[in-house]
Structures are given as structure tokens and as C-alpha cells.
Design a protein around this nucleic acid. Structure first.
Ligand SMILES: NC(=O)c1ccc[n+]([C@@H]2O[C@H](COP(=O)([O-])OP(=O)(O)OC[C@H]3O[C@@H](n4cnc5c(N)ncnc54)[C@H](O)[C@@H]3O)[C@@H](O)[C@H]2O)c1
Ligand SMILES: NC(=O)c1ccc[n+]([C@@H]2O[C@H](COP(=O)([O-])OP(=O)(O)OC[C@H]3O[C@@H](n4cnc5c(N)ncnc54)[C@H](O)[C@@H]3O)[C@@H](O)[C@H]2O)c1
Lengths: 217, 217
DNA sequence: ACAGTATTGTTATTAATTTAACAATAATGA
DNA sequence: TCATTATTGTTAAATTAATAACAATACTGT
């Protein structure tokens, strides 16, 4: 899927990603008391070009003013209208190890419409405890809890050799989005959003550039 | 930069990223005792198409055999030849909090040519201690240590409001690649590789897809 | 009043990337 | 022997994304 429909207009998925970035920049500016912003200012914050910003905003039909640029709070509202889902979306973390907890701490409270409502871990010492006031369940209860709590997104931070098994289980239980941080690539049906991130891939790219840098010079 | 030169041939940077993925898949297969692999098998593991794989391998001039496919160990060697930098690359972590430590643990020992040789933290309780046998330095010593230990890549896991300051410092000291996990976008000179990852952006995308999924149905 | 300036909104152009198409090849087996 | 099959390697086409170009506009200062 490379395009999505918003108000019967086709919008590239890449634009959706950038809208999320723009909103982040806008929120920061808004907190600083700024009320208006120019395309090139947004661009400077988020590593894109001013043209790209204007084009993206054109696509969602948002208009700025010639002398003041874009009204920050209105733009935030419009982007939120597109990105946010009013009833909110429930999320669960699978694997409450070091990495899972670090992500939880970071995410905790950052987005009111995205709620981590459960964690799962196979370690009996963790099952039944609370972390950030959220209960840790046994993997045996995955299906039950996902359905009961209407959980739609899963964050996978289990050991690599458990990834496939857990992924299958959560998809069967009705999960519609997976963030897989495991180094094991997983397969999901077409209607399930999947993102896989591995810092090692990024490190290898960085190292490659370092190499280029040193050799071509 | 969208293309790089390998053996005087232009290779898309995206291909470089995929080569890293392919190698990962190949290493796993190799460990399982497999000696040859078809393009569609690599593709199935790594969420790309078989054509993409063949095209990428063509670009780096690697040939498979018609009936057996690609020789796994030879392919690993060729990819490594491209990606790896023989003397190795030294890396440092800035901010040894929960997230920094989780990344360290994960990365630790995974790639012999990418070495985490120092960590930095402003917390006086951490300075002078060792984590995974690696010394934690005071931020005051950033320049000195980066130069002395020839550190080329920085992993940024400091608090968001410290990101810019630390980034500036490490770039000035000679760092050539930054993995910024802070939610603050930073600016670096053109010759410094920069990757910024934030799980919230990914979560927002996932939530958006959940929304699409439920509304268009 | 009007030239000069900075910015938006949009179309046109170019570049990059992916996908498709298919000839070439080597093995199989009827 | 020769059609069948499965795969690679490569060129061509299509798609997607980014960049450039520029008219339109509204404000400034003279
Ligand atoms: N993508 C990245 O950049 C990145 C970074 C760090 C870690 N990781 C990966 O994240 C995962 C977690 O890393 P970590 O350092 O937290 O490891 P960890 O061992 O501390 O945590 C794993 C947790 O999963 C639990 N677990 C095991 N099987 C389970 C199951 N079937 N269901 C639920 N929970 C289960 C364990 O009890 C443990 O608490 C690993 O796969 C690691 O490779 C990825
Ligand atoms: N990108 C992501 O997906 C993601 C996920 C988790 C956390 N984060 C970010 O990573 C960062 C760290 O998160 P955390 O949970 O580990 O927080 P943390 O507070 O546990 O760790 C931050 C560490 O940085 C140290 N520090 C502060 N100033 C410093 C300086 N000038 N130089 C060196 N060290 C310094 C602190 O002493 C602390 O140990 C935060 O910016 C957080 O927002 C990002």
C-alpha cells in the first residue's frame, strides 16, 4: 500500500509519515508560544525541504497565509484530524525485558490516544506484577486479553526465537498492527500493519558511510 | 546522497540497506547448514520481491547458478566485502539510561567489526563505572576520548533537551555517524551520516492504519 | 501609488525506485 | 531427442517521489 484516501483524495503514505513529523515540530513550537510558522521553518526542523512541506500541506488541503505562514494550532488540529482515531487505540507490549521496559517508559503518557493497556511476559516473576501501573499477563492469556481489552497494536520485544510464535498468536487474536523489534523478520497478513526496526541495520549503514568517507578521501 | 560507488558502479543507497538485510537472512540459513539459496527464498524472509533481490545482486555483480541459486557463503563474503570496514569502526553511547543500556546489551558482541568502546553519562554515579566492561566517561571528556579512541559513530540516548548540545560536541570532535534516538531532530554537516528513529512516529503510523482498517470496512 | 520582497499553492519536470517482461540456460524426464 | 520446468540476469516500462519553476498574492517602505 503506497497511497491512502483522505476525503476522497489520494495521499502518499510517505506524506502521512511526514505529517506525524510536522506535528511533532508544531507541538514544540506551539509550546514555545509561537502561533504561526513558515514552510521553511518546519522544513529546517525536520530534515525535509520547504517545497516538500508545502506540497504535503497542499495535498491535505491546508492553506497558510502569505505573510504569516501557517497557523500552528489550526494545522495541528487538521493533522490530528487525519492521524488520530478518536476513541483511541489500545496497545500491548510482548516481552517486558530491558528493551520492552525502556520503550514503555519512553512512550508512557506521550500520546493520550495511544494507550498501553497490557503487557505480556513468560517469566513467572513478572506475571501478575504491574509496571507503570499496567498489569503483566501470562502469554497463555494473550487471546483472551486482546479481545477483552480490544487491543489493536502489539509491540514485540520478546527473544528473537519467540517472535514468530508470538506474532502468529497476536494476529490470530485480532491485532491489526505490529512493531517488531525482534531481529527475526515475521510474516503477517496484508491487512496487518507491520514495521520492523533493527538498530544493527542502521549501524551497518552508518559504518558503511564511515568507510566511504575515509576511502574516497 | 542517493547513490554510492562500488567498484566504479553506482549503487543505490537503498540497495546497501537491503544487502545488510540479505546478509542477516543468509547468516541464519548458513547456520542451519544450508549452502545455496534462491532469490525467492531470500525475498520471502526479508519482505522484498525476488526481482528486487536479483536486481540488487546484479548491481553488485554477484552471479548465482541456474539450478542451485546463490552460493550462500560466497554471497555473504561479497556483501561483507562491501559493507564491512576491515579495521573495524569504534562506537560510543551517549546517555547510559534505560534505553542506552538496552541498546548496548542488544548490540553487544553481535558484530565483531563494530565495537562499542566508550559510554558517556553526566550522572556522577555512573561516571567511572563500567557497563559490559566498557568505561563510562564524563561528558567533559568527550573530545579527548573520541580522538584518543578514534570513535566514529555516536549513539545518542541522552534526554531530548540535551540532544543538540551533545550532537554539536561529537561532530566537532570528529564523529562521522550519528544514530539519534532522542525525540529532538538534530542538524549535522553533510559529511556526517545521520539516522533518526522514534518509535512514536511508527506507532502513529500503525494507529493510522488501524483507523483506516476500521473505517473503510 | 508602486517597485521590491517573501511566501504560498500548484503545475511541470526530473530523478529514483520498483515492477514487469523475457531471453538465456541448464536440468529433468517422457 | 525434445518439450517442460524453474531459475537467473538484464533490459524496458511503469510507478512513485522529489525537485524545480513560477504565477499569484499580500505586505513593506518609499
Ligand atoms: N530492534 C532493536 O534495535 C533492538 C534493540 C534491543 C533489543 N532488541 C530485541 O528485543 C528483544 C528484547 O530484548 P531485551 O534486551 O529486552 O531482552 P530480555 O531478555 O531482557 O527480554 C525479553 C523478555 O521477553 C520475555 N519472554 C520470553 N518469551 C516470551 C513469550 N513467549 N511471551 C512473552 N514474553 C516472553 C522474557 O521473559 C523477557 O522478559 C530481543 O529480541 C532483542 O533482540 C532489538
Ligand atoms: N527513539 C525511541 O524510540 C526512543 C525510545 C526510548 C527512549 N528514547 C529517548 O532516549 C533517551 C534516553 O531515554 P531513557 O529512557 O534511557 O532516559 P534516561 O533518563 O534513563 O537516560 C538518559 C541518560 O542520559 C544521561 N545524560 C543526561 N545528560 C547527559 C549528557 N549531557 N551527556 C551524557 N549523558 C547525559 C542521564 O544521566 C541518563 O543516564 C531520551 O531522549 C528518550 O526520549 C527514544
Amino acid at each position: 500500500m503506497t497511497k491512502v484516501k483522505i476525503h476522497s483524495k489520494e495521499i502518499p503514505v510517505k506524506t502521512i509519515g511526514r505529517l506525524s513529523q510536522y506535528r511533532r515540530a508544531l507541538l514544540i513550537c506551539s509550546q514555545k508560544g509561537k502561533t504561526h510558522i513558515f514552510s521553511h521553518e518546519i522544513a529546517a526542523i525536520q530534515h525535509v525541504t520547504a517545497v516538500q512541506v508545502r506540497r504535503d500541506l497542499m495535498l491535505i488541503g491546508f492553506n497558510g497565509s502569505l505573510k504569516q505562514g501557517y497557523d500552528i494550532s489550526k494545522l495541528i488540529a487538521v493533522i490530528s484530524e487525519i492521524l488520530d482515531y478518536e476513541p483511541g487505540v489500545n496497545v500491548a507490549i510482548f516481552g517486558l525485558g530491558n528493551f520492552g521496559r525502556a520503550l514503555f517508559n519512553y512512550f508512557h503518557g506521550k500520546r493520550s490516544l495511544l494507550r498501553i493497556v497490557a503487557t505480556f511476559d513468560s517469566n513467572t516473576e513478572k506475571i501478575g506484577t504491574e509496571y507503570n501501573k499496567v498489569y503483566c499477563y501470562s502469554p497463555y492469556r494473550v487471546e483472551e486479553i486482546i479481545k477483552k481489552k480490544d487491543i489493536k497494536i502489539a509491540i514485540l520485544t520478546v527473544p528473537p526465537d519467540k517472535a514468530e510464535e508470538v506474532a502468529k498468536k497476536v494476529v490470530d487474536a485480532g491485532i491489526k498492527g505490529i512493531l517488531n523489534y525482534t531481529s527475526t523478520p515475521i510474516d503477517v497478513p496484508d491487512d496487518v500493519f507491520l514495521d520492523e526496526y533493527d538498530m544493527i541495520t542502521t549501524m551497518e549503514k552508518a559504518a558503511f558511510f564511515v568507510k566511504m568517507n575515509e576511502l574516497n578521501l
